[in-house]
Design a protein around this nucleic acid. Structure first.
Length: 209
DNA sequence: TGCCAGGCCCTCTTTAGGGCCTT
């Protein structure tokens, strides 16, 4: 099958859950895929200008010592803005990463022009039998090899890419799509779970070879 | 000092509550 759309799959590590409460990004990782092939990667730590909690040090393995000599968020996010350009974006629980992307980009007066799609919302629809839809669980569910280094930005991005590709392959196998356009996954993200089969069946008429 | 979110989705729902996900 072909994967017509280029997408950038990204993941943030942060000081906490909410940029509105003062949390900042501490690491960004991203993978660009074209035609189903990884063609480019991005990963940088960034200094958020505040100490990270012991919980975050334990959760991510990113220590205050690792961050003290890192470039500030503004500098790293400028480079990341150049990397993403207007590419379509994917993240696992995209509402979380979108909040941090918007907040960090706003600080440097940047915007992104592409669309955003969520691998978590897609997985709840395509892998309805999975025990849950955490990234690590989906990796095991889809039989994707992993060394278990979760909660680092590039590693989680790479794993999200593999889950994403497994979902596209599953759509192709079950519904005989010749291609899975990014826009179709965006629509799938908003399709009620009980209507997913109907949605994918109808779409296959439009997209099959 | 201590506290802290928010969108999705289900149901014993819609004048609401709680679990799932992300750090």
């Amino acid at each position: 099958m072909s994967y017509a759309n280029s997408v950038v799959v990204l993941d943030f590590e942060t000081t906490g859950l909410s940029p509105d409460m003062g949390d900042r990004a501490i690491e960004i990782g991203a993978v660009r895929i074209e035609q189903g092939v990884v063609i480019e990667r991005f990963q940088e730590l960034m200094n958020p200008g505040q100490r990270v909690s012991g919980f975050i040090e334990d959760y991510t393995g990113i220590s205050n010592d690792m961050l003290k000599d890192a470039a500030p968020c503004e500098e790293v996010m400028e480079r990341f803005a150049e990397f993403v350009g207007d590419g379509n974006l994917v993240a696992h629980n995209a509402s979380f990463d979108k909040r941090f992307l918007d907040a960090e980009f706003a600080r440097i007066s940047r915007r992104y022009g592409g669309g955003f799609s969520c691998s978590l919302l897609a997985a709840r629809r395509i892998f309805q039998d999975a025990p849950n839809h955490k990234l690590g669980t989906l990796v095991r569910y889809a039989n994707i090899p992993s060394d278990g280094t979760f909660h680092r930005a590039l590693y989680d991005s790479e794993m999200t890419v593999k889950v994403w590709m497994a979902m596209l392959d599953s759509i192709n196998e079950r519904y005989d799509w010749a291609d899975v356009p990014f826009s179709a996954i965006q629509k799938l993200n908003k399709t009620p779970k009980k209507s997913v089969h109907q949605f994918l069946s109808k779409q296959s008429i439009r997209h099959s070879a």
